[in-house]
């Protein structure tokens, strides 16, 4: 077990010392992944709700597509976004490559299908319960989708958290589009990858523990909020 003792101590020392560089890296990780998750929710949740409630040609194909895209390999997303944002690519003129914005775009693309697919499941369950009542009241399908999104907000926090977890844990996409530039685009996962390749496995593992702790803390807060809200609203 002693392989784990040293990283644990290192992790604790890093946190206790309130290491400024570490704080910057953690904060950047949070910013990038929260922004990406936010975009993914704004785009993915309405898509998920319409897939659950709507009736239009190609709906089944889209459901399978979004479920499949949940397993999108981060490296592939990274490469696609890289080619788009590269100076030689179609969006090169914006000069976004190797910036936090590029990382946000890549993670948003990665996470949107996850949010959409999980939202579809949540809303589909709600729809089967609410369908007759909403139709009886004369709600259009679009209106019903909006109603269910708001009504399912506590359950949907799970979809958002799943997306966030995926975003903050992935390394392949941000490494490629961010370039792991010290102080600019270096986040938790790319730092861990870097320290691993430098052979400093204890430090890499220590950073890994901190990443896990951050993700756990966010989940715990979200869980507590959801519990409180559900007790309040039933």
């Amino acid at each position: 077990m002693h392989e784990f003792n040293e990283p644990l101590i290192t992790a604790w020392q890093l946190v206790a010392a309130a290491d400024e560089r570490l704080a910057g890296i953690v904060l950047l990780s949070l910013r990038v992944s929260l922004a990406a998750t936010l975009i993914a929710c704004i785009v993915g949740m309405p898509i998920g709700a319409l897939l659950a409630v709507g009736r239009f040609p190609g709906r089944r194909v889209l459901i399978v597509l979004f479920n499949g895209l949940m397993g999108l390999p981060p490296v592939v997303v990274g490469l696609l976004i890289y080619l788009m944002l590269s100076r030689a690519g179609p969006l090169g003129a914006f000069g976004l490559l190797f910036s936090p914005e590029a990382m946000i775009i890549a993670q948003a693309v990665l996470v949107t299908p996850i949010v959409a697919a999980l939202t579809r499941q949540v809303i589909a369950d709600e729809w089967s319960e609410y369908r007759e009542q909403l139709r009886s009241l004369g709600a259009s399908r679009t209106r019903a989708a909006a109603t269910l999104l708001w009504d399912g907000r506590f359950s949907l926090s799970t979809a958002a958290l799943a997306g966030f977890g995926r975003a903050i844990a992935e390394v392949g996409a941000v490494m490629i589009v961010g370039g792991n530039i010290d102080g600019v685009t270096r986040v938790m996962t790319t730092t861990i990858a870097l320290e691993t390749s430098k052979g400093d496995l204890p430090l890499a593992l220590a950073l890994g523990f901190i990443l896990i702790a951050v993700v756990l803390a966010i989940n715990a807060v979200a869980y507590a909020l959801r519990g409180w809200a559900e007790r309040h609203w039933g």
Binding site: E129, Y130, E132, L134, G138, T147, D151, G234
Partner: peptide, 19 residues
């Protein structure tokens, strides 16, 4: 009864708003 996760009043208002 299918109740939305909001107040009793808002549940009644919801039906009216759709009309």
């Amino acid at each position: 009864p299918v109740m939305l996760r909001t107040t009793a009043l808002a549940n009644v208002v919801y039906g009216l708003k759709l009309k």
